[in-house]
Write a protein that binds this DNA or RNA. Structure first.
Lengths: 167, 167
DNA sequence: TATTGTTATACTCTATAACTATA
DNA sequence: TATAGTTATAGAGTATAACAATA
């Protein structure tokens, strides 16, 4: 999923009217951004979904797996595999909830927090490289326009749509 | 591939410096754009890759499957399945090349051209809806900034990175 | 021997449903 | 009975290698 390979601009050229093609540019550049970020965090032996999961746990520590899965819009069965792997690597800890022993509370270990720091630095490098052809004013302008579209289209702040499925 | 679920902005907030988050916004909005376009063309019983393939054949008719696969950066083995389906539906035609009988030349049928027209209208609707919160000047501004990034990052015009693998 | 198109296969991602243990 | 977490499984999408026909 997740690929928009058709270019409205081209067919508009055939159809008559002049092309604008902002939508296609958005999918093209957006896909490139996602791919480059994935390449960068691969050097930390994680994938983008795992990076998002670590951040989510850090932002709201001690929540149940369902609560986290719900926030990120991913299936509980997917989250299990992620947490299994992170727990094996000593980055995340599962603790039984004493009040409701069906639930596990998720916490970051010290190693997990250190990794999150490295992910943050990777994200800043990614940001700088991707927008290196813009000056500060243009970067802010682009951010403002994208934020407007994101809000208008009903996208949840800080949650990537790649997580979705929601159900 | 293709999902960038980690938000640099958030961890920067933890790390210290103020967040900008243009890179994350790009993947978020770009993924949304690709998904919405996929939903739209699904009503024409095609997927975005197939829409891109139809456009490619229309732009350069009579080329071999390898030439088309090469342009779009997709594997020959993937293209076979797409062309099989499109030929069954009477949208594309395979013709043996008389000079080199190993090759098939790809052509759009009249039905295929009609479908391409409907795809073009769908693309224009998509473009308008996605950028409905911007005025004409802002839309042009956004397009210019995205085009600058696309060129700087070495993206091929009119070819979606989702096709890639290149090899 | 090399190339075009094709088939077979495998590996990942994603989605659904069934199972367990607790409530 | 309902819920949290887990397991098993099936379907896309994607990549690799082997094959037949032709050069």
């Amino acid at each position: 999923m997740i690929s928009d390979c058709y270019d409205p601009a081209m067919s508009e050229r055939v159809g008559g009217k002049p092309p604008s093609g902002v939508a296609f540019l958005l999918t093209q550049v957006g896909t490139h951004a996602a791919r480059r970020f994935a390449e960068r965090v691969a050097e930390l032996d994680i994938t983008p979904p795992v990076a998002g999961l670590l951040r989510s746990i850090a932002t709201g520590p001690g929540r149940s797996q369902q609560a986290v899965a719900d926030e990120l819009g991913l299936l509980p069965s997917r989250l299990v595999a992620f947490v299994d792997d992170l727990e094996r690597r000593g980055l995340v800890e599962r603790r039984r909830n004493a009040d409701d022993r069906r639930q596990y509370a998720l916490w970051l270990t010290a190693d997990g927090q250190a990794l999150l720091g490295r992910i943050g630095r990777t994200g800043r490098e990614h940001e700088l490289d991707l927008t290196r052809s813009l000056d500060d004013g243009e970067r802010a302008q682009l951010g403002a326009l994208l934020a407007r579209i994101a809000e208008d289209q009903g996208l949840t702040p800080h949650v990537h749509p790649g997580f979705s499925s929601l159900k």
